[in-house]
Write a protein that binds this DNA or RNA. Structure first.
Length: 556
RNA sequence: GCCCCCGUAGCUCAGUGGAUAGAGCGCAGGCCUCCGAAGCCUGAAGCAGGCGUUCGAGUCGCCUCGGGGGUACCA
């Protein structure tokens, strides 16, 4: 089932348009125009509709209704299309055949966990990089949105047959790491009884840094006491970062997020790949030495200003290293594509990166999804996240309070390019009202029905789906058939949030069906058919929840 | 100043240029002798404003107003 129903319909309509063009001598434009099919919002207009007549009216210089009629007459009916109607101002409306629809319940259950998958990205190696939180502190809610978002996107790509690798980039070099290391050293000295030391203004005043220094002293004692602050900083920072990254890993796992690679910036620099990339940029003629620094001539590539790749102190910038990191993924590590999930604050960086990627000829293999921030309200007040000062809300605390499923679902509900508000108290208070339970409840309810059916020895295999004729029954199948279409759309738009709305719709239709129709009843054949139907719904719900990374419980 | 994202119901948010703009929460009222009431049903309530593009605009373009984020030899 790797062709969606919409594509199936589109193919049939396209054939009708081509036939009309041949038979009526239509302009060449009619042969090349892309036929679009959509779902009318009003069910009275059928299951699918096409605006092809309106699109052609100008070039053909014929009234849309006349074009629509010509197309309608040439659409092959039977399966899957039962009837075709023309409506003002020129829509061609198509209705699916009930018996064909009913049969799809069986088809969906038969393919089971493969339902909705396709092979469009077969053979493509895609790296999806997300979260990649600052490693100098614990994971906060500020990092939260990119997790479920990147993970769900990775799921969708894998669903399309891609060989997906989830990656976490550990940004463990640079100025902030030096500052972090020095703060650790100062705290270490204070714990050793040394007086007269204060954490500088720009340092990490937060309490967790004291805990990290204490741990160093607990594990290694006073072994580093004779060293300079710089020496201590260079030893302490990697130690602390390793511990903190362990924490990031644990937090991610709590959300069901598992990374194949935890890639460190230090290893990239150590491997010499940065130097090699710098040469590649030089060879491409986009690099210039000026004021002791090395610059990318981004102005020549359309940017307002040039950007520094290597500072005059000889240390590469984050931007410079990131170019190497991306180039390595695409050139040396064998990824066909790289997809980054970045926060809104990286917008400027993204533009520079786009320029750099273009200069290396890699722009079309790299894509970024930018998500706007989540504004967190705590006790009614906006919380400004700042790791250094200790002003933050831990992602772990939020998971403790509302649960992993609710966190994922909440963060996946809205479009990435929209700022959203997360009120901590409200979320805790309403955690039982989270829409995720509405969806999970539908899944669990079906599981319960299946148990009831099993107790009575009812099996759905070989059920006569022709007995599924009620509107509530067929509407459920219609909804299930939207799932593969949605997967294809999302792979294009990256709008994974639409899965949550879809799940809600499908669950709602099921609850309505449940109200009106009894599955396990006196008529054994009807019961078997309806059992097949709800199993199809359960498969679809499970697939949807699976993409979202939310559990699909058998009971709750 | 310049660049990016967003203004949809009291609140939080959906809505691939289509035909009568949806959901959850909240509010008012109703439904369990019947496969799970974490459910169902009924009701009130909305596209920030203006101009354009076209057969058709919540959706595209421009402007105004409002919110968020960028604009470093920071990351």
């Amino acid at each position: 089932m790797s062709v969606t129903t919409a594509e199936n319909i589109q193919g049939i309509v396209t054939a009708a348009v081509l036939r009309a063009a041949d038979e009526l001598g239509w302009d060449e434009a009619a042969r090349t125009v892309a036929v679009e099919v959509e779902h009318p919002s009003d069910p009275a207009h059928g299951d699918y509709a096409t605006n092809i007549a309106m699109k052609l009216t100008r070039t053909l210089r014929k009234p849309p209704l006349e074009i629509a009629e010509a197309v309608k007459e040439r659409i092959v009916t039977g399966d899957p299309i039962a009837s075709v109607e023309v409506a003002k101002p020129g829509f061609v409306n198509l209705r699916l055949a009930d018996t064909w629809l009913a049969r799809q319940a069986d088809a969906i259950v038969t393919v089971g966990e493969r339902y909705g998958r396709n092979d469009r990205l077969e053979g493509r190696k895609i790296q999806v990089e997300y979260i990649s939180a600052n490693p100098t502190g614990p994971m906060t809610v500020a990092n939260a949105r990119g997790g479920p978002l990147g993970d769900a996107l990775a799921n969708v790509l894998a669903f399309q047959g891609a060989d997906v690798s989830r990656e976490y980039y550990i940004n463990d070099t640079g100025t902030q790491v030096e500052v972090f290391g020095r703060t650790l050293a100062i705290r270490y000295r204070q714990l050793g009884g040394e007086g007269g030391l204060t954490v500088p203004e720009a340092g990490y005043a937060a309490e967790y840094v004291v805990d990290l220094s204490r741990r160093i002293r607990e594990e290694d004692g006073g072994r580093y006491d004779g060293m300079s602050i710089e020496e201590q900083a260079q030893i302490f920072a990697p130690k602390a970062i390793a511990w903190l990254i362990d924490g990031h890993r644990a937090t991610a796992e709590r959300l069901g997020i598992h990374f194949e690679h935890w890639y460190t910036e230090t290893s990239l620099v150590a491997s010499g790949y940065f130097a090699e990339t710098l040469e590649a940029l030089r060879d491409a003629g986009h690099v210039e030495d000026r004021d002791g620094a090395v610059w990318l001539r981004s102005r020549e590539l359309g940017e307002d200003i040039d950007s520094v790749i290597v500072r005059s102190n000889g240390i590469p910038t984050y931007f410079g290293v990131d170019i190497a990191y991306h180039r390595e993924a695409l050139v040396s590590r064998g990824f066909d594509r790289k997809l980054d999930i970045w926060g809104a604050n990286t917008h400027g960086h993204m533009r520079r990166m786009r320029t750099a990627m273009a200069s290396l000829g890699l722009a079309d293999r790299w894509e970024v999804v930018i998500y706007q921030f989540v504004r967190f309200l705590h006790e009614g007040v906006l919380v400004k996240m700042a790791k250094r000062t200790g002003q933050f809300l831990l992602l772990d605390d939020v998971i403790d309070a509302v649960g992993a499923d609710a966190v994922r679902y909440f963060l996946l509900q809205s479009s990435a390019d929209r700022t959203l508000d997360f009120d901590f108290e409200l979320a805790v208070q309403q955690s039982n009202e989270n829409p995720v339970y509405y969806v999970q409840y539908a899944h669990a309810r079906i599981a319960s029905i299946r148990r009831a059916a099993a107790e009575r020895g009812l099996a759905s295999e070989g059920a006569d789906t022709a007995l599924l004729t009620a509107k509530g029954e067929l509407d459920l199948i219609r909804a299930c058939l939207r799932f593969p279409e949605l997967v294809v759309e999302i792979a294009g738009t990256k709008g994974v949030h639409r899965l949550t709305g879809y799940a809600l719709d499908l669950a709602g239709l099921f609850h309505a069906f449940y109200r009106d129709h009894k599955v396990v009843g006196d008529d054994a054949e009807r019961s078997r058919a309806r059992l097949r139907l709800v199993e199809a719904v359960q498969v679809t719900l499970r697939q949807t929840l699976g993409l979202l990374g939310v559990s699909a419980p058998e009971s709750m």
